[in-house]
Design a protein around this nucleic acid. Structure first.
Lengths: 295, 295
DNA sequence: TGATAAGTATTCATTTTTGAATTAATTGGA
DNA sequence: TCCAATTAATTCAAAAATGAATACTTATCA
């Protein structure tokens, strides 16, 4: 059994995930002809057809999907390896890549990062605002701040507080449509909500209120946009209480309804704890987030 | 963070496990200058020194050992990948690599494999007689026959019988030294045993007889050599009963002492069961071993 | 139907990687 | 102390991999 060229696996994964050689080429920076040759070679050395090519992009065969799992394991292990090495390199200067939910990245982190950049002059920051859970094991980011506790192993997680939520509307909206004194009144109002995230719906279910998607008359994928819509007087909506303090015109509605708060988790790969640089940033952000008055 | 050349990891592992570039070169078939350059390049792209070179071979640094685990994971994943592909390729011709304990490989398998080679003409066999447990996950072999149940996950294991043991001596020895009627008599005799394997010692402990290494006056690393020594009349020893049938001059001693038998496990990687070729060989050997009169 | 866009394959000059041969350095033993 | 053996580094010509440019194929849509 002679081993195959491990680099071919990287090209294979890129093609599989990109859906086409062209996409993979854009993603990886490797030229499209090279990627094509890599796939050819991998197919030859494994004796298996991996893609039906042509038409529109490359269509993975069953064999390709079968192989994919092991290929991702290789990628994960390679990321572990470079992380382990990074720890040994142990330099404090360089880039740290952070991912956070849209709300946190937009409204909470900038102030903290501004101070961090001032206090740690050798460090550069990349901030990715995204609600999709990046894969820390494959090092899509060094540090993640999320509202759900990560399930992957080998991650170091620290709870940095709970974001208390409330129901709010802008005074403009209240003046125009009257206030809400009872939960049942809300059926007559414009409710602002997120399109994809069913967190709020489940939250209501916990409280005994049955609502579905149609409960929200104004829906929006983007949490930041939804919050700004709330501030602009579009309707009634749910918002982290810490954000509403900055807007004097936001009025709390039905303060008696207890909405479960969102826990905030700061996460990084265990290997990264051996990297002085990332540990530094991790601790800095963690401390600052913990200090915030989230209630 | 730009990714590094994954092939460098293979060279790194070879150098680490071989202990020198030259050894790694012999092992992998890659030339020694190339391996050296690979290590250089890996060190450069990880920013870490991996080996103190010179003196006698290459001395791994702490960083190298730190990285090694992830590197082995990559190797394991790559083996998984090629095994998965092999199943999809589904060809019946080719090589199957088998590892078995010395006794099994020497005395039991040859007859079986002779038939197998006749019945399955497209298949080639590599047989490794070794008491060290090879790593099936890294594909040191496709099929393993062992006296201990493998503990690794992702392995498919089948018990193919229990090798009953007995205490024997050749008639030559008996004639010269007299027979043994009581266990305590054995202290006056030459006992043949394996040097490293403490299985027999533990077996005695289970039976309530306390013996230590010095109990064996003739010790030998090699199980096959030990058995042949027994046959040649060197002394009294333990042997699988199935082997003693071939030697009419071997006399069973103290037949009332019940020695626990050795279970025999036939193992292969789960992915390999999807390979028609290996499944074929696995089942063939499994059936034939099961049919043996091991008692 | 033809224009367009998006994809894969091919060609070829350039760059990179490789191994055979050789050199240099170190170790262990007579 | 010198010799033999073993090791890593260097040199250089040959082989392999790469990307820019280009050709080819096929969906999509007016």
């Amino acid at each position: 059994m002679q081993p195959f060229d491990w680099n071919l696996v990287r090209s294979f994964l890129a093609a599989l995930e990109g859906g086409s050689l062209a996409a993979a080429s854009r993603e990886t920076g490797v030229s499209q002809p090279t990627l094509g040759r890599h796939i050819d070679e991998l197919e030859k050395s494994l004796g298996v057809t991996l893609f039906e090519r042509g038409r529109q992009g490359m269509l993975p065969t069953k064999a390709a999907l079968h192989i994919a799992e092991a290929a991702r394991e290789m990628k994960t292990a390679s990321a572990s390896l470079s992380m382990a090495a990074e720890g040994d390199a142990g330099s404090v200067c360089g880039t740290v890549r952070i991912t956070a939910s849209e709300i946190v990245a937009t409204y909470l982190l900038p102030a903290i990062l501004a101070d961090l950049l001032r206090d740690l002059p050798e460090i550069q920051i990349e901030l990715v605002a995204s609600n999709t859970v990046e894969n820390l094991l494959q090092r899509d980011a060094d540090i993640a701040i999320r509202m759900v506790r990560p399930t992957q192993n080998d991650l170091i997680t620290r709870k940095v507080g709970t974001m208390e939520m409330g129901i709010y509307a802008d005074r403009i909206y209240i003046d125009r449509h009257g206030t809400v004194t009872d939960f049942d009144d809300m059926a007559d109002h414009v409710i602002v909500g997120y399109d994809r995230n069913d967190l709020v719906i489940r939250g209501f279910a916990q409280l005994g209120f049955k609502v579905d998607r149609n409960f929200f008359r104004f829906r929006c994928d983007d949490q930041v946009t939804a919050f700004e819509a709330l501030v602009a007087g579009t309707g009634i909506g749910f918002a982290p209480r810490i954000l509403t303090r900055r807007h004097a015109n936001l009025v709390r509605i039905l303060p008696d309804i207890e909405i479960p708060g969102l826990p905030m988790w700061l996460t990084s790969h265990r290997e990264l704890r051996t990297s002085a640089r990332i540990r530094l940033v991790n601790d800095y952000i963690g401390d600052r987030l913990t200090e915030l008055e989230l209630g």
